[in-house]
Amino acid sequence: MIQLKYDPLNIVVCGIGGQGNVLAAEVVGSAMIDRGCRVAVGETYGASQRGGSVMSHVRVSLQDDPSVLIPSGEAHIIIGFEPLETLRIARKYAGADTVAVYDPRPVYPLGVLQGVQTYPDLDALQEEIRSLTTLALAVPAADIAMEAGDSRAANIALLGAFSQVPGAPLSREDLEKILARRFKGPVLELNQKAFAMGCGAAGKGGAQ
């Protein structure tokens, strides 16, 4: 039987519309159900694929059905596909014991490109993520996915890294099982490759 460090265990998956946020959350949720947990997932994706901030809350319990939203300050794990979005979520949801796994590659909001807003200094931004969390792991998931063959697999690469975090609630095998069920053919191969590379990247000490 799976042991949960916290009950409910709260995971936030965040990024920008089009980065495969919803799918990543669904994969994590399904793997948790496989392990015999009760799961609730809340998705905020009104802006999906249109460049807006997107987040999913995955909540896992061995006792009862949690609500689909995490209270502020109560996230235990943050999986972020973009550094600014990771910080935005960490400021609101990180608490006493929060681990973040995130891609440090910035994606500039339109307002920044148009010169009406400023993107924070990347080093300071990452430093703040570290200050808000007990462990922050920066993994270049989009680069890994491009190397694996398609940038769209960045979400799966980051899930690979997530499975290697100390105390991760899911193992590499748990997630691989879901991938094999969820995808087939060349897409499965691509995702498996990106996933394995993600696992490897986390092992290489992306931890900061």
Binding site: R50, G51, E85, G111, P120
Partner: peptide
């Protein structure tokens, strides 16, 4: 009580406006 650590939460973060794909 929910408090951010010292120094955190100071820099304003740019919002992500919706845009056409």
């Amino acid at each position: 009580e929910k408090r951010l650590p010292e120094g955190a939460g100071k820099t304003p973060l740019p919002v992500r406006e919706l845009t056409f794909c």
